[in-house]
């Protein structure tokens, strides 16, 4: 993967709504253009992150799946 994250957020073991809640908090402390990496093993997190980024306008740069673990890269906009 070419994009290096500016911050990493570990949400392994947590379930909805926690990954989104923690992501929203983490985003607040990032500058526009910075990239957050969030890892989650909640099967619902793929749909949740897609919906959240679509609604908030942050850019979903990449989703990588390794077995049960999702790795999301989200770039903060605006």
């Amino acid at each position: 993967m070419s994009v290096a994250p500016d911050r990493k957020l570990d949400c392994l073991g947590l379930f909805c709504p926690m990954p989104i809640l923690k992501m929203r908090e983490a985003m607040k402390h990032l500058a526009a253009g910075a990239v957050l990496e969030m890892t989650s093993d909640d099967p619902a997190s793929e749909a949740d992150v897609k919906s959240w980024t679509a609604r908030t306008g942050h850019e979903l740069v990449d989703i990588e799946k390794n077995g049960p673990i999702f790795r999301f890269l989200v770039r903060k906009t605006g």
Binding site: P17, I20, D48, S51, W52
Partner: peptide, 9 residues
């Protein structure tokens, strides 16, 4: 309650 927390639909 949880959607009130996240603001998600």
């Amino acid at each position: 309650a949880c959607n009130a927390l996240t603001g998600e639909p």
